[in-house]
Every structure is written in C-alpha cells, then in structure tokens.
C-alpha cells in the first residue's frame, strides 16, 4: 500500500481489521510506539476529563478520543524534525508528535510548568522544538501556517515536511482554500490532513462542505485520498506515501480521514445532534481496539507487551497529575511578559 499512489478512492470499507500488508512493514518497536501513543492520548484525555469534572481545571477541553489512529498514523510516518500544525482538538497531535504528558497536564491546570507556562491552556499547546507549531483556537488557521512552514523548508532546503491537521469544519474556510492553493502553486512539501469526524459542533460535514473535501484535490491539481481514519494502517500507509512524495519535492497531498469523536464538541457539550445509534456504531469501530486485534492476529506482540505499555502509561499519568497539581500557579508579574522578545 505504501507503494501506491495516494490517490485512492475509499477502497477499504470501515471495520476491516486486516492491515493489507502494512503491519508487516512496521517493526515491533514501531508497533509498540503506535500502541503507546494511542493509549497515551486516550488515557491523558480520560484523566483530563476527570480533573475537569472535579473542577480542577477550567476553560474549553476538546477531546480527541476516538480519533487516535489519525494523529498517530500520520506522526508515525513523520521524521523527528518535521513540523505539524494542529487544531483546537489538539491533545492527540501533540502527544503523537512526542509531547510530555506532565507538561501538557500542567498546562491544562494553568501552572507555570505547563508547555506555555499556563498562558495558553488546552487550545494553545505548542512545542516548537518538537516541531509542533501549535494547537489553534481559530478554525482553519493552522493551514496557511503549515503552508508557510513548508515554504520555509523549501527555501532553506532543510528537507522537512509539514503536516496541517484540520477538521471538516475548516473545509469551508477561506484559510483552507488560500493555504492549500498556495502550497499547490509553489509545490511545497506539505501534507493537508482533514480529520473528518462528521461534525463541527452540531453542523454535519456534508452540510458545511458543498463537495467532499477529498474531491478538491483535483481542483488544486494535487493528489488526494479518502481513507478510514480509524484504520491505523491505512492512515500510516497513506501518510507515508504523501510525506515521502512531499520530501522528494513533488508537492502537497490532501488526505481526508473519516473518523469520529466519541465525546461531545467540548467537555460541556450535552446536545443531542447525534443519535445514540450513530455514536455506538463508531465506538464499535474504536481505532485502538482495531489496532490491537490486528496485531494480536499477526502474533507480532503479545499480551505482555501491551500490559507493559499500559503499566508505563498509568505511571506516566499518575506522575503527570501529581506534577501538575504540585506545580506553582503563575504570578501576576508574568502577565505582560512573553508579549515581545525582550
């Protein structure tokens, strides 16, 4: 699959656990890493939700639970120095790009030890050193920024690729059109990954987008793919092809990954715009469970491997919460600091 052109038309039905040979291309260490990242995302957010409900944090929390395979599969195909831009629903991208959960948790708690010293919160975590150019409170805004990062790489000839993650809700924005069109005209090393989780708040993706997002590739003269975003292997293979292509200087690719958020739009969302049946249907296509099933069938990792990783994550989570809670609150003298380089 990795050898295929990324221009594919939805060849694999959702719920298919077979990896079509992709699993075999991944090392045991890669498989362990993938499981580690997906489970970290899930456990980080479950823990953050508990803390929010216990009134230990405030603001808006947008959970990525159910979409883990997309960020993880894409980031598994990136090199360490590559860049991403993220969204308001950014915890998954952040963790998949290698972020530390203790510093993330501390940021959600608003403490000095957080990624942004408490100034950004959940919606603005960035780790420039890891290549994460930031979560974003403005829908679509990461897309032109990714195009800019890709232009910088082209001009500096640093061989890096930038991935822009964005939702189906960003499809209608001007930023999407301008960012993707410019990247295509300049043949930039960018990959545009739409996480179509079916909704932007209560608005269905098909209501918001006059034509499917993946169908816009031809309009910009770039390859595009429509894939099952809950199939880790399909995400990885498609992203790998697109990233390799970008790195070779052959220009951007547009990928639309179909997925679903198990939770509400924010932690506070209790509205009924989705049916129980629909939610149950997608929970049954849980990307982590599907990955585990496929790996189990291949007999590449065993129960001990998974348990060891689960144990590691629980220790990390425990540490992250303790670290966040023990960390100091910022003091008011920092309010006007970091606005400019001094």
């Amino acid at each position: 699959m990795a050898e295929q052109s990324p221009v594919s038309t939805n060849g694999r039905a959702g719920g298919d656990d077979a990896s079509n040979g992709v699993l075999e291309q991944l090392s045991d260490d890669q498989l362990r890493w993938i499981y580690l990242i997906m489970r970290r995302i899930r456990r980080f957010e479950e823990t953050a939700e508990e803390a929010f409900r216990a009134a230990k944090m405030r603001g808006a929390l947008h959970f990525y639970i159910g979409e883990e395979a997309t960020a993880t599969g894409v980031c598994a195909a990136l090199d360490e120095g590559d860049f991403i831009t993220s969204t308001h629903r950014g915890h998954g991208h952040c963790i998949a790009k290698g972020a530390r959960m203790d510093k993330m948790m501390a940021e959600l708690f608003g403490r000095t030890t957080g990624y942004c010293g408490g100034k950004g919160g959940s919606m603005h975590i960035a780790d420039i050193e890891l290549g994460n150019l930031g979560a974003n409170g403005i829908v679509g805004a990461g897309i032109p920024i990714a195009t800019g990062a890709a232009l910088g790489s082209k001009l500096r000839k640093d061989g890096k690729v930038t991935v822009a993650f964005f939702g189906d809700g960003a499809g209608p924005t001007g930023a999407f059109h301008e960012g993707v069109n410019v990247a295509a005209t300049m043949n930039l090393p960018a990959v545009f990954v739409c996480e179509n989780n079916q909704y932007g708040m209560a608005t269905h993706a098909d209501f918001a987008n006059a034509a499917a997002i993946h169908n816009r590739g031809p309009a910009y003269g770039i390859p595009s793919a429509s894939i099952d975003g809950n199939d880790l292997f399909e995400v990885y293979a498609t992203a790998k092809t697109a990233i390799d292509r970008a790195r070779r200087g052959e220009g951007p690719t547009l990928i639309e990954a179909r997925t679903y958020r198990h939770k509400g739009h924010t932690v506070l969302d209790q509205k009924n715009y989705r049916t129980k049946e629909e939610i149950a249907e997608w929970v049954a296509r849980d990307p982590i469970e599907r990955f585990v099933r496929a790996v189990n069938e291949s007999e590449r990792l065993d129960e001990d491997d998974f348990q060891a990783i689960d144990g590691q994550i629980e220790r990390e989570i425990e540490h992250a919460v303790a670290f966040a809670e023990a960390s100091p609150w910022p003091t008011v003298d920092v309010i006007e600091r970091d606005v400019y380089v001094e």
């Binding site: 603001g59 608003g110 408490g118 919160g121 910022p330």
Partner: peptide
C-alpha cells in the same frame, strides 16, 4: 493577550 491561567 488574555492569558489562560485563572490567576493571570
């Protein structure tokens, strides 16, 4: 800009 952390 408006900071996130409550005391700020």
């Amino acid at each position: 800009p408006v900071p996130f952390s409550e005391p700020l």
